[in-house]
């Protein structure tokens, strides 16, 4: 809903006023560095891993420093597994190959660093896998000539409980929503317990898909807290407009000891279709 409003404001602003932008020099203070954790128990290709890095000065203009040689374990309440750091990518810790999450289970992440960051060596986080809404009929990929974009429409029956969804997209098996700003987060406030009648769950730029591609919509039921976290990140990285943006604020975290980032776990439903020609059904 927020996004709909943002779009409407931007349209009005551009119609009415020709505002201008230019780069400006700002002097910023230095900040203490902190541990950053990005991790998931996930079925989506390449997403099931724990990534450790450090914060940097805002204008440092470099990739963040990876945190290597940590002891990383995941505990699902019955067994604890150790993750192993990739030899190719520093700071990436991978699960055993056969590892997969179970709905309803609670997962605990434990991190033990080789060297202290901000005076702390041990960090922990916990999350639970919510039930999956997998009563999906179909999806449709429609061309919209007005925006020159692909519209992904979703036909399913929403269960009568509070659900939080994360939608990802895959083209021929490859994740194309590989950046958090492209992921779509939605709650079921407006259609809880109802049929979704082809609600648009994703916009993709016209060049992201070609006719004949196999498009897969990945629906994941996530926790309310993770949904809030992703929405916060998306808010903080989009440009502020004084008319409706609230004051900037740090995104939340579920990692202990002042570390940043999020540890999440979810199950996903995959629905595929073949992309048709660029014909707008509205015309």
């Amino acid at each position: 809903m927020k996004h709909l409003l943002n779009i409407s404001y931007i349209i009005i602003l551009t119609v009415v006023f020709s505002s201008c932008t230019e780069k400006i020099d700002i002097n910023l203070d230095k900040s203490e560095s902190a541990l950053v954790v990005e991790g998931a128990v996930s079925e989506i290709n390449g997403q099931q891993r724990i990534k450790l890095s450090k914060t940097a000065e805002y204008f440092s203009n470099q990739a963040p420093t990876a945190v290597s040689n940590a002891l990383v374990t995941i505990d699902d309440g019955t067994e604890s597994v150790a993750l192993s750091e990739s030899e190719l990518k520093n700071g990436y810790y991978y699960f055993p190959d056969e590892y997969s999450g179970v709905v309803g289970k609670t997962y605990t992440l434990n991190i033990n660093l080789e060297n202290e960051i901000a005076g702390k060596k041990e960090y922990t986080a916990q999350t639970t896998i919510p039930p999956l809404s997998d009563d999906i009929d179909s999806i449709a990929v429609e061309w919209n000539s007005r925006f020159e974009a692909w519209l992904i429409k979703f036909y399913a029956t929403d269960p009568p409980r509070k659900d939080y969804y994360m939608f990802n997209g895959m083209k021929n098996g490859e994740l194309i929503t590989d950046s958090i700003q492209n992921v779509n987060i939605s709650d079921d406030r407006l259609y809880n317990g109802n049929y979704t009648y082809g609600i648009a769950v994703m916009f993709l730029d016209g060049d992201k898909l070609e006719p004949g591609d196999i498009f897969t919509l990945v629906l994941s039921n996530i926790t309310e807290e993770y949904a809030n976290f992703v929405t916060e990140v998306q808010t903080e990285i989009s440009p502020g407009i004084p008319l409706f943006s609230g004051p900037p604020a740090n995104v939340s975290s579920n990692i202990s000891n002042g570390a940043l980032g999020w540890f999440t776990a979810y199950r996903s439903a995959f629905t595929s279709t073949v992309v048709g020609e660029r014909i707008d059904p509205e015309e």
Partner: peptide
């Protein structure tokens, strides 16, 4: 008066600001 970022981190292939 405004709040500016003093640090940043990367999450989901995106640079996220960390504020004053």
């Amino acid at each position: 008066p405004v709040t500016f970022p003093v640090g940043r981190f990367v999450y989901g292939n995106t640079v996220v600001p960390y504020y004053s």
